[in-house]
Structures are given as structure tokens and as C-alpha cells.
């Protein structure tokens, strides 16, 4: 056992509307430690630095390898996945690590927020292929390697919420749908059968809260843990909506 310690300062809140507070914890360092394993250590021994036994911190997590999108939180002021926040990287010299919940979503408790609106947005933009059915209908249309290589990175969006959290246009005064859903429109509109319904998807982004609300701050692409080219996606979809707005059905 090493005598190296790891210090956490965690924002706690029991429910929306109740008062927030900060709890501090001091943990023993262990190899390959990350924010999640630290929170697990707190579960095993939920005692603060001022020696109070408190309720263990609650947070959301599933896969712990950055493919599920669950464990998004604000670590040292930056929105990211907690599972890839390795202690040796974020606090190499024993700096205090702060954890806070995301601010652009309704709080549930401690580090948990409610991201339902992101899933609702996927419904809004019709982020799916209109499949005739799952019965056997033979092979799908052929696709070039080039097309696949463009689509695959777009398809890795985990609905984690980082881009919405970082976007200045997503706030309590705006209905901006955010980069994640716009990126899905680009993805489905480039698929050989998805593009048959491209206009419908574009139209979902043409009203209030749609693509015109993007302020081009480009924060989204900075924070995306999957390095999805969100700014490109917004540009591509923006051009397409403009075209659709000007020429409508004439341009197919």
C-alpha cells in the first residue's frame, strides 16, 4: 500500500430545489485509479475529511469504458466522462479533484441529472431508418468504403450530453436542440435509404430551437469524448436546410 492520497471535493444535492453542499473525501491511491473507482471507494467507506459518515455519493455509470455515455459529469470544471478521468492524469501531484453534476439538465440527486430531453430530441428529428420490417428482404444497398468511413464516426454518439453542457446556446432561455441531434440528421440523411426521408428530418430542424439557433461557438467539438466532427455536421445540415428552404421539392 502506498501512502499517496487522493483528495475529492464533491458537490452534493439531495433533490432539485434543496440546498447544495460540498463534501470532501480523502482516499488511498491505488493503481489505475479513476473517478469511478474513487466513487466506489467512497461507497465502501463514506466518511468525509471532517470525519462525518455521510450517505455515499450517487452517480450514473454503466460500461466504464466510454461507450455507454452514462457517467458524464463536470470534473475539475470540465464536462467529460468520469470513467476515463484517470487520477494519475487529472491530479498527478495530489491536487484536489472537484466533481459536479452537469448544469444544463434537471438535477436528480448529487451527480445524477435527467437527460431525457436528449432521447426525446432523437424522436423529434426522426433519427431512424424507416424500415419496412425485420423479415428477410435480402441485402441492403451497397455502400462505398468512403461512405462508411464518414458515417461510422457520426454513429458513435453516446447521447452523453457533453456537447449540450458546453454549448452556450443551450440554456434556460432557449430551446436549441443541440449538436447531438443535428449530427444524427446528418448521419441518417447520408444513408442510402435514410436519405429518402431527408426532407422530413431537415424540416424538424427548421423551426424555433432548430439549426438556426447554433451560435457557432464550436465548444461542442472540443468536449466530445468520441471526437465526432459536430461542427462539420452542423455545417452540412445547415447548408441542406437552407437549400431545402429555398428550393424545397424542386431540388431532390
Amino acid at each position: 500500500m502506498s501512502d499517496r492520497k487522493v483528495r475529492f471535493k464533491i458537490k452534493r444535492q439531495d433533490a432539485p430545489g434543496t440546498e447544495a453542499r460540498w463534501d470532501e473525501f480523502l482516499l488511498d491511491w491505488e493503481p489505475q485509479m479513476n473517478v469511478i473507482s474513487s466513487l466506489m471507494a467512497i461507497q465502501r467507506n463514506p466518511v468525509t475529511t471532517d470525519n462525518r459518515t455521510v450517505a455515499p455519493v450517487v452517480w450514473e455509470s454503466v460500461c466504464l469504458e466510454e461507450v455507454c455515455g452514462s457517467c458524464t459529469m463536470i470534473v475539475n470544471g470540465k464536462v467529460r466522462q468520469a470513467c476515463t478521468a484517470l487520477i494519475d492524469q487529472i491530479a498527478p501531484n495530489g491536487e484536489t479533484i472537484t466533481l459536479e453534476p452537469m448544469t444544463k439538465f434537471p438535477l436528480v440527486r448529487d451527480l445524477i441529472v435527467d437527460r431525457q430531453k436528449m432521447f426525446d430530441n432523437l424522436k423529434k428529428v426522426k433519427a431512424w431508418i424507416q424500415l419496412d420490417g425485420t423479415h428477410e428482404l435480402g441485402a441492403a444497398p451497397r455502400q462505398s468504403q468512403e461512405n462508411q468511413e464518414e458515417a461510422y464516426p457520426l454513429s458513435r454518439c453516446m447521447t452523453c450530453g457533453c456537447c449540450l453542457e458546453a454549448c452556450p446556446q443551450v440554456n434556460s432561455h432557449s430551446d436549441f436542440i443541440g449538436p447531438a441531434a443535428i449530427n444524427q440528421v446528418r448521419l441518417f440523411n447520408m444513408h442510402p435509404s435514410g436519405k429518402m426521408h431527408a426532407a422530413e428530418r431537415l424540416e424538424t430542424l427548421m423551426g424555433p430551437g432548430g439549426i438556426a439557433d447554433c451560435g457557432k461557438a464550436q465548444n461542442c467539438v472540443e468536449v466530445c469524448p468520441k471526437e465526432i466532427p459536430l461542427v462539420d455536421s452542423i455545417a452540412v445540415v445547415s447548408r441542406a436546410t437552407t437549400k431545402h428552404m429555398l428550393f424545397g421539392w424542386l431540388l431532390k
Binding site: I129, A139, Q148, S155
Partner: peptide
Amino acid sequence: PGIVYMLDRMGVPFNRTPEGLL
């Protein structure tokens, strides 16, 4: 084989061969 074709139809970005096949 039918299942993989179905998934392809659903839009799974499967890797491709130079001919555009799965």
C-alpha cells in the same frame, strides 16, 4: 445471414469491401 442483412438495412455502419459489400 438474414440478420446481418437486416442490421445493414437498419443503417449499422458495417465495414465494407472495395466493392461496397459487407
